[in-house]
């Protein structure tokens, strides 16, 4: 029985050996799922879609998808796959109309609605093209329109900007933000990009090794990362000290060739792993256990001879460090 008072997504998902996670989201919310490769991000989407065996419970707008288990086609979802997977034998229009036709919408109506969706994505002039004749960005728009057209309760996006040129990804990100604002259902967005999480999401779910390492608003997660992965994504250093996390910006790190004297409480030593331009600075990755980022000016980098392999000391002032509790 559907319970109208319970809305949004409530899911606890366990896939033995791969994933054990819970996620809750209000209707209209966008949840960014981030984490390193193999963290279980795609597994989470596939489990929610019903494509992998799982234990646990999934409720969408008060309807259980798990007791009894619903077939994939009985779940009101839209899934945008990493490789788009547009039907190669159908036109853009045929692809977008497919879900409506499958749900018994008459052909004429379905095609009119599909035209409307292509129009909203600014590609209605490409309606008759086959996927092979579309660019990456166009194909991704068709894929997203196809997933949204049947009015799903849950939208699953698996790295929608992967493999696109930076410029294309940027404009598509803006467009997607607009469509997600209009979308009444819950969106789960798997991404590798901190920018996606910060610009598109209301909530961030950080997965690591198949479990939820952190959950919160994008602002919280970016300011107080609890995993190395997220710290790297948002360009922060984070170290764990007992039951306290300490995070600090690479800009706050002082680099020297000799052990620093003075008031700096936090000091590390290690070899430079890489030195790459970052804005108007040079960003160093130093294998200092843990790996740390440090920004120096190009002049300083030249003066200190900071090339990979060079042993350096890093230090940071206590005032530049934000400390927060583990739990």
């Amino acid at each position: 029985m559907a319970d109208d008072t319970v809305t949004g997504l409530h899911a606890t998902v366990a896939v033995p050996g791969r994933l054990d996670a819970a996620v809750t989201a209000e209707p209209g919310a966008v949840v960014a799922v981030i984490g390193p490769n193999g963290a279980g991000k795609t597994t989470l989407l596939r489990a929610v879609a019903g494509l992998v065996e799982m234990q646990g419970e999934i409720t969408v707008d008060g309807e259980s998808w798990t007791t009894p288990r619903r077939l994939v086609r009985e779940r009101r979802l839209g899934y945008v796959f990493q490789d788009q997977s547009l039907f190669p034998h159908l036109s853009a229009l045929g692809n977008v109309a497919f879900g409506l036709r499958a749900r018994r919408t008459p052909r004429r109506e379905a095609e009119a609605a599909a035209h409307g969706w292509l129009e909203r994505f600014g590609i209605d002039d490409l309606a008759d093209r086959r996927p092979g004749e579309l660019s990456g960005g166009q194909a991704q728009r068709v894929a997203i329109a196809r997933a949204l057209a049947p009015d799903p309760a849950l939208l699953l996006l698996d790295e929608p900007f992967a493999g696109l040129d930076v410029g294309v990804a940027t404009s598509l990100r803006l467009e997607l933000a607009r469509h997600l604002r209009d979308f009444a259902g819950v969106t789960l967005l798997v991404t590798h990009d901190a920018l996606d999480a910060l610009t598109l999401a209301d909530q961030v779910l950080v997965l690591d090794g198949g479990t939820v390492a952190q959950a919160g608003t994008p602002r919280e997660v970016a300011a107080r990362p609890r995993t190395d992965h997220v710290a790297r994504l948002v360009g922060l250093n984070v170290i764990r000290d007992g039951d306290t996390y300490r995070s600090f910006s690479p800009r706050a790190v002082t680099v020297s060739l000799n052990r620093p004297e003075g008031s700096a409480r936090h000091q590390w030593a290690g070899p430079v792993v890489s030195a790459v331009p970052h804005g108007d600075a040079v960003r160093l990755l130093v294998a200092a256990d843990p790996d740390l980022l440090a920004d120096v000016t190009p002049a300083a980098a030249a003066e200190l001879g900071l090339a990979p392999g060079q042993q350096v000391w890093l230090s940071v002032k206590e005032t530049a460090v934000e400390a927060y509790a583990v739990s």
């Binding site: 879609a49 494509l51 077939l71 994939v72 086609r73 979802l77 839209g78 899934y79 796959f81 997977s85 039907f87 190669p88 034998h89 497919f98 879900g99 036709r101 499958a102 749900r103 196809r146 997933a147 049947p150």
Partner: peptide, 25 residues
Amino acid sequence: ERYDVVAATLGATRWETLRRVTLPL
């Protein structure tokens, strides 16, 4: 099977999938 999976996420039954996706491909 990839396209069969896509068709299922779009609500198509196996029979519809066969008719509209699998056989044409």
